[in-house]
Design a protein around this nucleic acid. Sequence first.
DNA 1: CGACGTATGTACGATATCGCACAAAGGCAC
DNA 2: GTGCCTTTGTGCGATATCGTACATACGTCG
Lengths: 250, 250
Amino acid sequence: MLTTHTAKQNHLLAALPAAEFDRLVPHLELVPMPLGEALYESGGRLQHVYFPTTSIVSLLYVMEDGASAEIAVVGNEGILGISLFMGGETTPSRAVVQSAGVGYRLKSQLLKQEFNRGGEVMRLLLRYTQALITQMAQTAVCNRHHSVEQQLCRWLLLSLDRLSTHELTMTQELIANMLGVRREGVTEAAGNLQRAGLIRYRRGQIKVLDRPRLEQAVCECYAVVKKEFDRLLSEFPMADPLHSIAQSRT
Amino acid sequence: MLTTHTAKQNHLLAALPAAEFDRLVPHLELVPMPLGEALYESGGRLQHVYFPTTSIVSLLYVMEDGASAEIAVVGNEGILGISLFMGGETTPSRAVVQSAGVGYRLKSQLLKQEFNRGGEVMRLLLRYTQALITQMAQTAVCNRHHSVEQQLCRWLLLSLDRLSTHELTMTQELIANMLGVRREGVTEAAGNLQRAGLIRYRRGQIKVLDRPRLEQAVCECYAVVKKEFDRLLSEFPMADPLHSIAQSRT
DNA sequence: CGACGTATGTACGATATCGCACAAAGGCAC
DNA sequence: GTGCCTTTGTGCGATATCGTACATACGTCG
């Protein structure tokens, strides 16, 4: 792909006031984020924070017996490493690249300095953090009450919102790891969606054919999270070039 | 009960630097928190923040169909109303008193002012928020992977840590609402624990008889959350006058 | 083109939880 | 103490997901 990358592709960076943005830009380092790479390990120190642009990163918790569950997903709307400015330095979760791409990284120290100035940067990061909290809370609710198929829909939509495409490169096995269910469960759910004409997939590629109907099939959890991100970060409503629950039909 | 109440019974308040504490104290208002009271409604404005002392409050999300799930629990270690200083003003969840008692409340405006001074108060509140985030994340994981019985153990221990007693006033019906499972499921799990001699209960009263064994029966989620609270808020390690995973056996 | 590794499809019994229905018992009010 | 309401106990069949095993299909690489 012959794309040019700019830091503004990350919505959080793009929303910074000009002065702060200019101050940070020279220190932003474009880095590849290959599939499966662990940006942070559970309990590890954070050398950098990351601003994904064309990649998606999952926060997930891996249990003692190896089972895992996704807690939240971060893409071009956000930042990885919030525990840095929240004061804890580390978290018990891992951050794993779920969809390969690139992003920008910044030395932890620099972000912390910027946060501690206490101005718009701080307020923006805190609002983002609150949106992330909503996503985690809704993940808990969804895990409790909704079927694998509904959760798959939610997961697809949340992921698509964080890229700017209809297509995902992602095996069912990986999705199963994220959702914390069996791979066969994902196969069955995805099969249903494909038969219904909502998606089409082949070997690690998933294409959404009918997003409006996908949004009808998804549980309320998706809309709750999306609304909250839009509300809290309305300076830069999430990319959604196609269809959206929020839009009224013309 | 003939107890005297002081604001220092809330660990977060107790951990404030003397100057800040003294500034806030005159504005702290002791309020009763009766069972079932909703401190916040989903999406509602926050007039006050609350610092529970002898009460426990659940953050829970109620779905369109009426089903519910607890997202996190807040007691004398914390504060209700974090969205105030996180910048969102509201959240999609409700806050409901789960165990009756008292707490202190403070006008939102005053806490916001204090937060915006940016000193130790801010850092403390943010660290608390990170601990709360961990609790939410672990709730999501636990909902996904653990049995009702394990979750009941976790819930009991988290609740006890937030009071200073071995006893809870709580019907199985309410616990079921919190965990987002059927009441019968709680009855069965509680029955198992009682037969095993870990707890004893009768009509809305649950007494923990053997905490060490309860801590053996619980899933890892409890320890993850507890460790994180202790780590992040170590100026005031959580009340745990009896037995604890953290302690080594003598 | 063929082989091999990975991804996906399918089947089947085991298990946990659900949804519902109703029985039993505890405790409070009169 | 008696009666009544709430809480807890129990017993189903229905359902979703699990765990395991194996079959098929895709696509890349030699």
